[in-house]
Write a protein that binds this DNA or RNA. Structure first.
Length: 191
DNA sequence: GTATCGATTAGC
DNA sequence: CTAATCGATACA
């Protein structure tokens, strides 16, 4: 997608990402359709890594939209975010689940499972299936090997549902998690 | 410097 | 429900 797609409020970008295809050509070709996301709104959002200002970890969130913010968490997992908003605003969308499309063998090998249902369900699983680590932090999603295809979203008639974000202890009053209603690829209950 | 707790996951 | 596992953060 062009950079302007990402240079909007995180809530708008989160909704617009649902049903679109993410392609990754890092160490092989893997792709999936985005079915679940969460918006993080920087300084306005106590659950955001950027809430307390710029640090080495969250630096790319303060840069231009359309770049990847990849962070390491729980000592084990990586998570992939799309930086959005205007430069200096520090908003992002966390990709929580994809419907696997291509590169299933490679994704399965990376994940250590053949279960298609669990290949890209959950933010840590998404990053692992795509082979992403902090090395990919800051990648340009507009021109790089990791990108959202510039094609219409395909939602197969599913509505966009919303609810509280998962795994946070503050900011739980906001319904800033979005998913394709009823999609089996969604990570948590509710679908 | 030390203590605490994660934007999680897999397994019991 | 809990262990795993380490870096970011809070606080003395």
């Amino acid at each position: 997608m062009p950079r302007a797609f990402y240079a909007r409020d995180a809530l708008a970008v989160a909704r617009a990402l649902l049903g679109r295809v993410l392609e990754c050509e890092i160490g092989g070709h893997v792709s999936g359709r985005i079915v679940e996301v969460e918006a993080y709104r920087g300084a306005r959002d106590p659950a955001s890594h950027a809430f307390r200002g710029e640090t080495p970890r969250n630096r790319v969130m303060f840069g231009p939209a359309g770049h990847a913010y990849v962070y390491f968490t729980y000592g084990l997992h990586h998570c992939l975010n799309v930086v959005c908003g205007r430069e200096g605003v520090a908003a992002a969308v966390l990709l929580r689940a994809l419907e696997p499309l291509e590169g299933l063998d490679l994704a399965a090998a990376r994940r250590g499972t053949d279960d298609l249902r669990r290949l890209m369900r959950g933010p840590g699983c998404v990053a692992q299936a795509l082979g992403l680590t902090r090395e990919q932090n800051g990648l340009d999603l507009v021109s790089g090997p990791l990108r959202v295809l510039d094609e219409p979203a395909r939602r197969e008639g599913r509505r966009v549902a919303s609810g509280p974000r998962i795994g946070i202890s503050v900011g739980t009053e906001h319904a800033w998690r979005f998913w394709l209603e009823g999609h089996p690829g969604v990570s948590a209950r509710g679908r």
